[in-house]
């Protein structure tokens, strides 16, 4: 690559200190998008795809693909942090915020303080409701301007970027509201119940 050495060097320095400040402890930056899955990638027919908000007894709302895409769409640019120590900056997602899902379901507020994500393929993960409010989480259908690749969770995945990325459940099917914080697939097997990358909450007890 031929680049002007002086200006490039100066810009590079600014950028690297900005990047360092955005990289949580124990993480390193990547430019690619590694794939980590607990099972085979489900191939979901969009005609049969459904996404719902439920609790133990009720289905508050359910959307098919067309209805879901008619909900208010929001774009975010955010950094993501995988517990396996990679972080990726400035990722671009588009989807429906959790706030807009609640509103579309006619809920003034979430019915319980916690939620358990249920996914096509059987994966689960738990997130406190408070961590999804005020734009902190969305159900995304597009990444970097493109349809979300099935390997990365398409047709739709949760994105809750301020927690380790295993919380951002791929192939989401249902958000179940729960009274108690119910450990999901990794949380019941030694991973941290909350998973804050800035406090390095990788494992239970961290």
């Amino acid at each position: 690559m031929s680049e002007p050495p002086v200006s490039r060097g100066f810009r590079g320095k600014q950028r690297s200190s900005d990047h360092a400040a955005r990289t949580p402890p124990g993480q390193h930056l990547v430019n690619d998008f590694p794939v980590l899955s607990a099972g085979p990638t489900p191939r979901i027919d969009l005609v049969k795809w459904r996404f719902a908000l439920t609790d133990g007894h009720n289905k508050f709302a359910e959307w098919d693909w067309e209805q879901f895409n008619a909900l208010p769409q929001t774009k975010i640019k955010t950094d993501i942090h995988c517990v396996t120590t990679w972080s990726k900056l400035d990722t671009e997602w588009r989807g429906v915020t959790f706030d807009d899902l609640l509103a579309a379901a006619g809920l003034d507020e979430a019915p319980t303080p916690f939620a358990l994500m249920h996914c096509y393929g059987g994966y689960t993960t738990n997130v406190p409701v408070e961590d999804m409010l005020e734009g902190k989480a969305m159900v995304a259908t597009r990444f970097a301007g493109e349809e979300l690749d099935p390997e990365h969770g398409g047709p739709a995945r949760l994105v809750v970027p301020h927690l380790y990325f295993w919380k951002s459940a791929k192939w989401i099917q249902r958000i179940e509201f729960t009274e108690t914080d119910t450990p999901g697939f990794w949380e019941e097997l030694g991973y941290h119940i909350y998973g804050d990358p800035w406090r390095e909450q990788r494992y239970a007890g961290d």
């Binding site: 794939v35 980590l36 899955s37 607990a38 099972g39 085979p40 517990v83 396996t84 059987g122 295993w166 990794w186 097997l189 030694g190 991973y191």
Partner: peptide
């Protein structure tokens, strides 16, 4: 068995039905 989970852990799935 089929192995998944990457660096998070070993998830062994039945090669016949994909059950964990």
């Amino acid at each position: 068995a089929r192995l998944y989970g990457g660096r998070m852990g070993a998830v062994f799935r039945c090669a016949h039905c994909e059950n964990v």
